[in-house]
């Protein structure tokens, strides 16, 4: 299912759109055509699940949508602005301002406390004063249930807690788009449900588009839209 939305005075209802994305990976004889002309849209306030077997191109699509990678062909628009042909600096700036990432292995910076990890994207964007950054980071950690552990280093948190910090960090700059690559893939059932609920509740509260890649059918079922992929195409 692909949803499309008409543009309003405040901008398009969709936060993210791509058209005809192609991507090859590898070199020479090992070169694989991973994405074969994928198109996709994500509206604000909606949660999308991209599902499919390993190697079908889900994560590759997610990294392209998150501007972490460049397509060989096709277009990507973020908040109505075409980004696929921009230089690295513009794409990096767009990531910092409009996109939040949650990865399977959380990727917390372990030498920093939970609070510092959440403040890190805010410090780069520089939109808030230091005191306001600190206040927002505290509020975000409160909202993911870690208000009492703000000063713990990454190494002093459990896997579930680290993933919750990663969610708070992804939301730090109030991005329009939240991209999650197997956010519950490394967690037990209880923590999986907790993390998914948090992700969807916070995104819905803030009107953010959430796109997550998952192997977990239960998680996928609970999303607003599920997009199955096979061999580099949505089916």
């Amino acid at each position: 299912m692909t949803s499309s939305a008409p543009a309003s005075a405040a901008g398009p209802a969709w936060a993210l759109r791509c058209r005809g994305l192609h991507r090859h990976l590898g070199e020479g004889e090992g070169r694989v055509h991973v994405l074969k002309g994928v198109s996709f849209e994500a509206e604000r306030g909606q949660v999308y699940a991209i599902v499919g077997p390993s190697g079908c191109g889900k994560s590759t699509l997610l990294y392209l949508l998150g501007l972490l990678d460049r397509p060989d062909e096709g277009e990507i628009e973020i908040n109505g602005r075409r980004m696929s042909n921009h230089d690295d600096a513009a794409r990096t700036a767009a990531r910092g301002e409009h996109i939040g990432f949650v990865f399977q292995f959380h990727f917390l910076m372990l030498e920093f406390t939970a609070l510092e990890n959440v403040m890190m994207p805010m410090r780069k964007l520089g939109r808030l004063a230091p005191a306001a950054m600190r206040e927002r980071a505290h509020a975000l950690l409160d909202s993911v249930g870690l208000g009492a552990k703000t000063h713990r280093l990454g190494t002093q948190l459990s896997g579930g807690e680290q993933q919750r910090v990663a969610i708070a960090r992804a939301l730090a700059n109030q991005p329009a788009i939240l991209l999650a690559d197997e956010p519950t893939g490394n967690l037990d059932v209880r923590n999986s449900n907790l993390v998914f609920d948090l992700l969807t509740r916070l995104a819905k509260d803030n009107g953010q588009a959430v796109v997550l890649v998952t192997h977990n059918p239960e998680i996928a079922q609970r999303c607003d839209v599920t997009r199955p992929m096979r061999d580099g195409l949505f089916v």
């Binding site: 990096t92 910092g96 301002e97 990865f103 910076m109 890190m120 994207p121 780069k124």
Partner: peptide, 16 residues
Amino acid sequence: TKDIAILRSMGYERRD
């Protein structure tokens, strides 16, 4: 390298 990737994903530029 993973920290570099996460920094880049958060908007940190190559020059950062």
